[in-house]
Each structure stands twice: as structure tokens, then as C-alpha cells.
């Protein structure tokens, strides 16, 4: 089998990624695996250039957003973080964000990058800061309840939606209480 990236060298690595519940297989040679970011060393070994080469490939071969490729690049050129001033093209060059706000600013461009780097994952499932945790934990729950509510309404499951709405009110009150506590 030939490497699917360079079509030259034999594919020696056969990688399986589960992305959004769909299994994808990649057959690549070791050179391309490193270059395109399929495998990489952590820490100082991770080359940003490689990450970005991967990113460009992702943009130019849009698997999920066919036909939107040009739009995609057009709008990304204008994106700039208003807190630290980093533009998306600067990010593409360096592979590093300038501040916490950048994650918000570039959020619409972020998922493909994160998927590529983190085996298809885009959401955090780990530790929450202890001190500010309770608050964030409730907000996280609120977001998932609201998504659930929307789905229930679309399905016209109004009784279940009503129950969920009460839960949402409780969580919202909890967040308000906590925020009032923080100010005191």
C-alpha cells in the first residue's frame, strides 16, 4: 500500500481515529506521518511548522465543508484578537495563541485544528479549577441542559422540556447565588 499523503513511499503506519463517532483510517509513511502531524513528539519536539502544514492541508482539502474553502480563507484573513492583537494568519505562521481571548476570537476556525492535533477531540473532559470550579461546573451543566432543551422542543417533547426548564432555572439561580457570593 502506498502512502496516502505523498503517494510515493510505502505506508508503514496505519492509524485509526474516531472522529464524531466515525472511524477514519489513515495509511501513511513515517515521513508524512511526522510532517502532517499524524504523530508527533510532545514538548519541545512538536514542530509548529508541521502542525501548520497540516492545518493548511486541512483547509485546502475541506472534508466537512466542501465548497466553502475560499470563503473560509477569506474571512480568516480578517480575524484579529482585540485583546492581544494577534491575527489568524499570524497564528497560522507561529502555531501559538497570544492570549486566552484568542480561543474565543478564533473559535470558528479552531475545531479542525484541534481535531487534527487531538485525535478528533474538540472538548475538554478533565480537571476543572478547584476554586472557581463550582461556578464553571454549573455553567457547563447549564449549557448541556440548554442544548438538550432545544432538542426536546424540536422533537415536540413538551412535557419533558418543561421538567428540564425547571432544572435550568435552578442551575441559573445557583450561578446567580455564587456570583453574588463572589462579589461579597
Amino acid at each position: 500500500m502506498k502512502c496516502q499523503e505523498c503517494q510515493k513511499r510505502p505506508a508503514t503506519l496505519h492509524l485509526k481515529h474516531v472522529i464524531n463517532g466515525q472511524k477514519r483510517e489513515h495509511h501513511v509513511c513515517e515521513v508524512c506521518a511526522k510532517e502532517k502531524g499524524y504523530v508527533s513528539s510532545p514538548d519541545e519536539g512538536y514542530s509548529l511548522h508541521h502542525l501548520l502544514t497540516g492545518l493548511f492541508n486541512f483547509d485546502s482539502v475541506p472534508i466537512e465543508s466542501q465548497g466553502q474553502g475560499s470563503n473560509h480563507l477569506q474571512s480568516s484573513r480578517d480575524l484579529q484578537c482585540d485583546k492581544c492583537g494577534l491575527t489568524f494568519s499570524q497564528f497560522k505562521r507561529s502555531g501559538k495563541f497570544g492570549c486566552a481571548q484568542c480561543y474565543e476570537t478564533f473559535s470558528s476556525r479552531l475545531d479542525p485544528i484541534l481535531r487534527r492535533v487531538h485525535s478528533g477531540n474538540t472538548k475538554h473532559h478533565g480537571k476543572i479549577p478547584k476554586r472557581r470550579g463550582g461556578h464553571l461546573h454549573m455553567k457547563k451543566q447549564l449549557a448541556s441542559y440548554k442544548a438538550e432543551l432545544k432538542a426536546l422542543i424540536e422533537q415536540e417533547a413538551f412535557e419533558e422540556a418543561a421538567v428540564l426548564r425547571d432544572k435550568i432555572k435552578q442551575v441559573e439561580q445557583g450561578i446567580r447565588d455564587q456570583e453574588a457570593g463572589d462579589d461579597a
Binding site: L48, G126, K127, K139
Partner: peptide, 21 residues
């Protein structure tokens, strides 16, 4: 310390290869 943390993305780091945990 108030850490840079986002409920969806986790601990925010300069390089996206470290974000999350």
C-alpha cells in the same frame, strides 16, 4: 491565581497541542 480556563476548551495554553488538560 486566576487560571485561563474555558468550560469547553479546558486550560488554555499558548500552543493548541497542550490545550484541555
Amino acid at each position: 491565581v486566576d487560571y485561563a480556563f474555558d468550560a469547553t476548551r479546558g486550560y488554555l495554553t499558548s500552543c493548541p497541542t497542550n490545550v484541555g488538560t
